[in-house]
Design a protein around this nucleic acid. Structure first.
Lengths: 190, 190
DNA sequence: TGTACATCAGTGAACGCGCGTTCACTGATGTAC
DNA sequence: TGTACATCAGTGAACGCGCGTTCACTGATGTAC
């Protein structure tokens, strides 16, 4: 049953991707190793050929998810049809599609509270991801001094994360949409 | 070993309070019934004399925690020494003390991601708590039209929640303090 | 290039453990007379 | 008001179950000659 080197690398990536989706959907703690391996189309026993522990996988998923999230922001920002990069980012991040895409969306919004309690390695990856996003958003304020743009970007990111979380908690769809809409308005006005 | 009616009521409240602190500190899923009963000074067997299930406790803890959180905002807002209610609320919510008080702070910041996945009853309690906080914050904008004040309050609350979560994720204390500080600045300027 | 053997990705049973929940029991509280 | 009995808060052992992790095994891949 041994697989080729190329297949092994591919499988490892598949596990990370499947785990990322499961973690986001159900929470890290609530997702078992057997469950995430099944989501990757494997049985649980093979897990330890790829990772030393579940915690190590969590750290790698976090690092991977951070990179993936950045690409999405980057794409939104560099859309040639967009007049305003920040507006495009906010429109994209604070959309009902993103709100409803729990397994694919921003890891801060779906796992933020758990990341705050995670181990050193995972939090380091998360911090790195935060800073990268901040830089990306700060770049959108072209006519603003770099350090002011950076400070503003921190606020924008934190606000978007909080807004998405609140829009997911609230049980009234209309209220949820309003939360998203109002945040968009306020953030663009900045 | 039977306890008096008054004692029973008091014990029930003690369990809810202890569970609230444990949930906030470790997460809902990561906190066991035995663990939270021990935190209340009891053994796990007695749990089911007070609650039908862990899920029911979660809903009650959520409802209780929402009320407790409101009192804190209310106190900050009505501080007679404060010139500006909103400023006082932000100063209080976005303080390093609140950030470091994981077991006692805002339930949205510590449990938000888990609340988004919680059952109907729990989410209803959370939605109710959100709306109550929004009203409280909206009241601080005395010279603003009520519906605009309300919309702004939603944004302020969501932003504060997201900011506190991000400040808890990040591993560099200096960066964490900056995140808090910048959000305070931006929210007061509103 | 072909052959013999070591390697190791993946399977599925099994490990100890802690989970949520149940239950027989204890003995103080509440209640009926 | 005093007595006899039912109630039930709390204890701690036990339940089945799923968790993270380990392991013997399989057989295709990689490697040494």
């Amino acid at each position: 049953m041994r697989k080729s080197k190329a297949e092994t690398v591919e499988t490892r990536q598949r596990i990370i991707k499947a785990a990322g989706a499961e973690f986001r959907r159900n929470g890290i703690h609530a997702t078992g190793v057997a469950e995430l391996m099944a989501a990757a189309g494997l049985t649980h026993g093979g897990f330890y050929r790829h990772f030393a522990s579940k915690d190590q996988l969590v750290a790698e998923v976090c690092a991977e998810g951070m990179d993936a999230g950045i690409e999405i922001i980057e794409a939104a920002a560099s859309d040639p049809q967009a007049l305003n990069g920040l507006e495009e980012i906010a429109e994209n991040y604070l959309s009902t599609e993103h709100r409803d895409d729990r397994s694919g969306g921003c890891p801060f919004a779906s796992l933020g509270c758990e990341l705050a309690r995670a181990d050193e390695e995972t939090r380091a990856a998360a911090s790195d991801g935060f800073l990268k996003r901040v830089d990306l958003i700060a770049k959108q304020y072209r006519r603003t001094k770099p350090d002011i743009a950076r400070a503003r970007a921190m606020f924008v990111l934190s606000s978007m994360v909080g807004t998405l979380i609140m829009s997911r908690i609230v049980d009234d769809p209309k209220l949820s949409a309003t939360i998203l809409q109002e945040a968009k308005k306020h953030l663009i006005e900045l």
